[in-house]
């Protein structure tokens, strides 16, 4: 409940984060409601109606197989969101745990772990994702793991810092005396301190995750066709860019809107919560 209260407090003060949140929720709703709002089947081909420009019948036109771009766009939101949400959740859980354990154990182990995290952080997400997916083959699971790896370090940092502080404090000793386990101590005393920071990082890194997923799909390392993905749609559309620019324009705008909403959300939250973080 303390966490929820903190959430409201954080959101209430900042307009930018509200606008970002609204846009993000709208895109999520679009993905969830895809079966009802897409109109047609995104995979249904219609050779006669191929490369049609936007019209009343096909709002965003059709692609080279006569598939409805609007329907593919709506369904494509699912891939962008599910890959990035899973990747960031994974990064949050694994990275967060690494930070907790590393900070709690301390010493040389902590130093080593943090050095590895620094190296991961200095690796551009796209290149790391590219290498991993290239060597292991493109699949949704590999994609998620690759993107999660690039986002491990920031979450490890977030949980490590307060762990170091909590470790020094008296009430941990008191907690131990009462027979609480390490896990419970950390969970109760560390997590509430970092809720807003986690939110900021999660939204900013989710923006990166969406970008990397779309980029890898554009390169041809994303989720396999015929599943519609925004990056993949642009990849296919790029071949017909002279005749059918709408094939690139609409998915391009969709990607932009999603990343922009997340950046707004993260940026607004950051300004609202911690002025010290500004400019990082």
């Amino acid at each position: 409940m303390r966490i929820l209260a903190r959430l409201f407090q954080v959101f209430g003060t900042n307009k930018t984060s509200w606008v970002g949140l609204a846009m993000f929720v709208a895109i999520c709703a679009m993905a969830l409601l895809a079966p009802w709002i897409a109109g047609t089947d995104p995979l249904e081909q219609d050779i006669i109606a191929k490369l049609r420009p936007p019209s009343a019948e096909h709002w965003f036109g059709t692609d080279e197989f006569g598939r409805d771009v609007y329907a593919r766009l709506v369904w494509g939101a699912r891939i962008s969101l599910s890959v990035s949400i899973s990747a960031i959740t994974l990064a949050l859980v694994v990275g967060g745990t690494i930070g907790l354990v590393s900070g709690y154990v301390g010493g040389r182990f902590d130093m080593l772990v943090m050095q590895v995290m620094d190296i991961l952080l200095s690796f551009p997400a796209l290149i790391l994702g590219l290498i991993i997916v290239a060597l292991l083959g493109p699949s949704q699971a590999n994609l998620i793991v690759a993107i999660a790896l690039t986002a491990l370090a920031p979450f490890a940092r977030i949980t490590r810092a307060p762990t170091l502080i909590v470790k020094e404090r008296q009430f941990v000793e008191a907690g131990r005396a009462l027979g609480f386990g390490h896990g419970r101590i950390l969970f109760v005393h560390v997590l509430p301190n970092i809720v807003s920071e986690v939110l900021v990082m999660a939204s900013l890194w989710m923006a990166t995750a969406v970008r990397v997923e779309a980029s890898l799909s554009f390169i041809g390392l994303g989720v396999r066709p015929p599943t519609p993905t925004w990056g993949g749609m642009i990849r296919d559309g790029f071949e017909n860019i002279l005749d059918a620019p709408w094939l690139c324009i609409y998915p391009g705008l969709a990607i932009l809107a999603l990343i922009f909403s997340l950046n707004m959300l993260g940026d607004g939250l950051r300004d609202a919560t911690d002025p010290k973080l500004r400019g990082e």
Partner: peptide
């Protein structure tokens, strides 16, 4: 600038190209 850094480069590249 927030819009600018929200553009994946392949999208902005394609838009500029168009």
């Amino acid at each position: 600038s927030l819009v600018g850094l929200s553009f994946p480069v392949f999208v902005s590249g394609i838009f500029l190209l168009m």
